[in-house]
Design a protein around this nucleic acid. Structure first.
Lengths: 349, 349
DNA sequence: CTGTTAGCGCTTTCAG
DNA sequence: CTGAAAGCGCTAACAG
């Protein structure tokens, strides 16, 4: 009633639907749909008319409805262990940016490291809500992943926890090469007794980094003292303990290579407690190069993992999968590089 | 082919639909829908039968379809400036956890601090994809927010950038009280010349914290030296500069209160460069108590803002809005508290 | 190049 | 308490 229709008042109740646009533009809804989906078979003139109306009313298509009829929702799911985390944050950020550029939406599903939660979340994501998913550091076993794949749901693994199964789209970083770089850096500085705070045994990252560490040592003709390698949870408090252990050895290392920034920062704390100065008395290098590396004093030398890039790459692979295009490289490894800051120097004496 | 049908093979092609479940359970789809939505008008026995089948097939309802027919999609949108951030991370995490508990999905929309992007993102979120939104530190002006509200889209603002307009659901922290606490702590330690690295002028957080800072000083009978307050961008490099400025004053402060952890850590860096020891030569306190506060050496004394709690609270308000329930407290302020760590001590001499 | 017509999977009156 | 039927907004053949 009282249909003013002065100028900017939409002649429909809530938000415009494709039908409103069609009426306003004087065409059929099919035509509007075509325009909206950039189909080639529309007269340029018609297209312009429709776009006009669309812009005027700030119309944008209802994803749910589109999903229902076409099967593609324009949304992708993303699982990750933790959302408030210096490591996963940048990955998520990179992925979300890439998705934004493609005008796709991201459904966030943090798993808090719980296997069951992750499984049920993925299950739900599959049910018509999303077109595919990115699984960051998934909890699922290879077998579970394969089952998922066999169900025809497109997904890509970013930063696999275990050695990446082949046939699965997967993006990782060059752990071994990075670890080799870090170790060589220490070696060049003159260090001969280098301790390593490795991550949790069995993890892909841990084992690969260990490989690089050992390779560099071997190349320098140094045989590894088993006492100098201690496994640890990835978090700082555990890094402190591990460093304590290393530093209280009869013949302690002059440098410590933490397999991620958290444990390396743990080493910084341990050294501080012991009155050791970094880098004068002890050199420390980390891995990942998260934001933490730069805020700590002294700033941490660390191996840079291209976290955001990994997220973007995951999206890129996923899009190919969803579009059914051939994915030649199912598995991509992004390179790592050493960022030298203030925590490394030649050994004392 | 070779449809084994041994036991767990579903008799339908892709994923089960509500119709499949209905057939299998020998009821109508309407009944299944009722069960799925916890409607009261179903015989307990029928309900059980249906649930049985649902569980057996791991069925869960297609949100898109539900959204289409009922108007509620079970998804909510969340905008925030940055996703990879020690400040927003915990807020996002809290919100996502609360949403998970309600079996709702979250559509993530990072704005990278771009006003236009945020506006268009919110616009899109409104169009049938989500039931409502949480806007963290929104870029929108009060006027824009009100327009949004007038369109009937439920949303809540978490951590307003400007003084929160009333009538809008909003959750914030008690900035002034927290700043007062921090200042009093310094005062009790014996500091008399206390510098402040304030945030950007005009921000709600900045102004409120300034109020608390001034109030504490006034209560102690100290009148503020304008030279001792310097405004700054919220990031560490700017914090360093601000601290440099403070520390190079003819009569430099013995303590610095950074209005967030980033700038406080900047003060730590500045002190380090100057050869000043914290807390012996200079005390530093931060605000927010992000993860950074605990990893830095010395660990930072900081005012704790209940970030995750704010996210949860935002969800809780939003749900009430969506369900059309009365929201008595449209505006909630969560309390802050001081966490004393290692960066504060009595002034030298 | 454009319009007509089925549904997509689900919720929801409205009858029984 | 349960079923039948009418869409929700959109896409995708299929005709013209």
């Amino acid at each position: 009633m009282a249909q003013a229709d002065v100028k900017p008042e939409p002649p429909f109740r809530g938000r415009a639907t494709i039908r409103d646009i069609a009426d306003l533009a004087g065409v059929s809804i099919a035509t509007v749909s075509r325009v909206l989906n950039d189909r080639p078979d529309v007269a340029p003139e018609t297209r312009e008319t429709v776009m006009q109306v669309v812009r005027e009313h700030g119309f944008s298509t209802n994803r749910g409805a589109r999903g229902l009829s076409s099967g593609r929702t324009g949304m992708i799911g993303l699982t990750l262990p933790l959302v408030a985390d210096a490591y996963f944050g940048p990955m998520l950020s990179g992925a979300s940016e890439a998705l934004y550029e493609r005008d796709m939406r991201i459904v966030l599903a943090p798993t808090f490291h719980e296997h069951d939660r992750e499984v049920s979340l993925v299950e739900r994501l599959m049910r018509g809500t999303t077109d595919g998913a990115i699984l960051m550091l998934p909890e699922e076993s290879e077998a579970e992943l394969r089952t998922l794949q066999s169900q025809g749901f497109p997904f890509v693994v970013v930063d696999p926890r275990e050695p990446p199964p082949d046939g699965l789209a997967c993006v990782a970083a060059m752990h071994a090469a990075g670890a080799k770089l870090a170790t060589e850096h220490l070696l060049e500085l003159g260090h001969r007794r280098i301790g390593a705070i490795a991550g949790q045994p069995g993890w892909y990252a841990t084992e690969e980094r260990l490989l690089g560490f050992r390779a560099a040592l071997a190349a320098a003709g140094i045989l590894v003292d088993p006492d100098l390698i201690v496994y640890s949870d990835w978090r700082t408090p555990w890094g402190i303990r591990a460093a304590d252990q290393l530093l209280s050895l009869p013949d302690p290392p002059t440098a410590i290579f933490g397999f991620n920034d958290n444990v390396a920062i743990g080493a910084l704390h341990a050294a501080h407690k012991l009155g050791l100065s970094v880098p004068d008395d002890l050199s420390v290098v980390g891995f990942d190069d998260t934001a933490h590396a730069a805020i700590v004093i002294p700033q941490l030398t660390s191996v840079r993992q291209p976290l955001a890039e990994m997220g973007r790459m995951g999206v890129s692979l996923l899009m190919r999968l969803i579009e059914g295009r051939r994915v030649d490289a199912m598995r991509v490894e992004l390179s790592t590089k050493l960022v030298v800051r203030e925590s490394t120097a030649p050994p004392p004496r």
